[in-house]
């Protein structure tokens, strides 16, 4: 029983990691209808910036705020410089651009910061809450931050004009332009927001998995599974999907199929969702007029 509880709580902690990055994936998808393969590496670069700021003597929260702002700017710049020139190209070309961006960012991070494992500070207490042995304060904190980001996103898309405009651009760029929305600017904003969410995710993930250039490669795959399971256009889906993937992966690994096939759970999940219910648990089915 104790073992089972350990697995479930470790799964929830991992799930929060997947969910936070899945949120960034969903953000970019809602604005551009593309899955950004470079999302993890963008978050990696943000995390390294935060680490460098802290190393240089900045306090945690200063580093946090500056990094999120910098990441927003980085998202906007990348959209303008790298993505927009390719925006009229076929979808496949854009995917290649994303993959190129992923490899390039990863190499740049390694080149600048090296490949050794770095520890990253946590804003939460070191001791687990209430003296329990199941889940640490930081893990609980990550779950809270992820849920907090989800709440903010929900409010943003549901109740603000800017959120409405972003949704309009994603839904129908041409009509949006005709009613006077500056579509390019909105795309840039979407990229900026996704990068900022990714930065928060990275800063939350790094204390758990430790910071090195390969930090995001594994996480990213599970985040994809989470986002797809929840529905790639649904923030709530991303978070629920993240927790399901995290717990399912642990329980299957520990009790059913063995640790060798843990990763396979995520991959099988991706395939099953795409075949059985491509819109995921919470996503909207796509209907196109022909």
């Amino acid at each position: 029983m104790e073992g089972l509880l350990h697995q479930v709580f470790a799964g929830l902690a991992n799930g929060a990691i997947y969910a936070s990055l899945a949120l960034a994936l969903v953000m970019i998808y809602r604005v551009t209808h593309f899955v950004n393969f470079a999302q993890g590496e963008l978050a990696l670069c943000s995390t390294y910036s935060a680490w460098a700021l802290i190393e240089a003597g900045a306090s945690y929260w200063v580093a946090f705020v500056v990094t999120v702002a910098l990441s927003f700017a980085m998202g906007v710049v990348i959209e303008r410089v790298v993505i927009r020139p390719a925006s009229r190209a076929p979808a496949l070309s854009v995917v290649i651009v994303f993959i190129g961006l992923m490899v390039a960012l990863n190499s740049v991070a390694g080149w600048i910061f090296g490949y050794s494992t770095l520890s990253f500070p946590s804003p939460f207490p070191a001791e687990p809450p209430f003296g329990n042995h199941y889940i640490g304060s930081h893990e609980l904190g990550v779950i809270a931050v992820t849920l907090g980001m989800l709440g903010l996103l929900y409010v943003f898309f549901r109740f603000t004009t800017l959120g409405l405009v972003l949704r309009a651009v994603a839904d129908n760029a041409e009509s949006s332009r005709l009613v006077g929305i500056r579509v390019e600017r909105m795309l840039g904003l979407g990229w900026g927001l996704a990068a900022a969410i990714g930065a928060v995710a990275g800063i939350m993930i790094a204390p758990i998995v430790f910071l090195d250039p390969s930090m995001m490669s594994g996480v990213m795959l599970y985040a994809f599974a989470a986002a797809l399971l929840g529905g790639i256009d649904s923030p709530i889906g991303a978070v629920v999907g993240g927790f399901i993937v995290g717990v399912l992966e642990n329980l299957m690994g520990a009790y059913v199929i063995g640790t060798e096939l843990k990763l396979t759970v995520a991959l099988v999940l991706i395939v099953v969702v795409l075949v059985v219910k491509p819109s995921g648990l919470f996503g909207q089915p796509v209907a196109a007029r022909v």
């Binding site: 350990h6 594994g218 060798e260 843990k262």
Partner: peptide, 20 residues
């Protein structure tokens, strides 16, 4: 015995299994 893949984000689950 428990294994992990280099792509796993953490080995927390494996360590819990070994403790058990």
């Amino acid at each position: 015995e428990a294994t992990y893949e280099v792509s796993d984000p953490t080995v927390d689950s494996q360590v819990a299994t070994l403790k058990a």
